[in-house]
């Protein structure tokens, strides 16, 4: 199963689902990571964590452990 944490820099994907069992899933949905939306990994600085994802015209920094509940 591929998640947003597996994206490479510049790579785009469409969100398939959000994993409900993750404690951050609610916040992630609220800020606009909903199924069907396109995301793109725009930067991945030192340590490759947290990563910066583009969603709905905004850039969100998110830890890989949180991004793991975004299924693509």
């Amino acid at each position: 199963m591929k998640t947003a944490s597996d994206l490479k820099i510049g790579e785009k994907a469409i969100i398939k689902d959000i994993d409900n069992s993750h404690f951050s899933s609610h916040r992630i949905l609220e800020i606009g990571f909903t199924p069907g939306q396109e995301i793109q990994l725009v930067s991945s600085p030192l340590f490759n964590d947290p990563i910066a994802l583009m969603i709905r015209g905004s850039i969100i920094a998110i830890r890989k452990s949180d991004a793991r509940c975004i299924i693509i």
Binding site: G36, Q37, E38, V42, S43, S44, P45, L46, A52, M54, R56, G57, S58, I59
Partner: peptide, 23 residues
């Protein structure tokens, strides 16, 4: 529903600010 893109200038600046080394 995806027609709004993020601010292009910010994305360009972030290439440096969030660069692995330069960042």
């Amino acid at each position: 529903p995806k027609f709004l893109k993020a601010d292009e200038t910010s994305l360009k600046i972030d290439k440096f600010i969030l660069h692995k080394f330069w960042g």
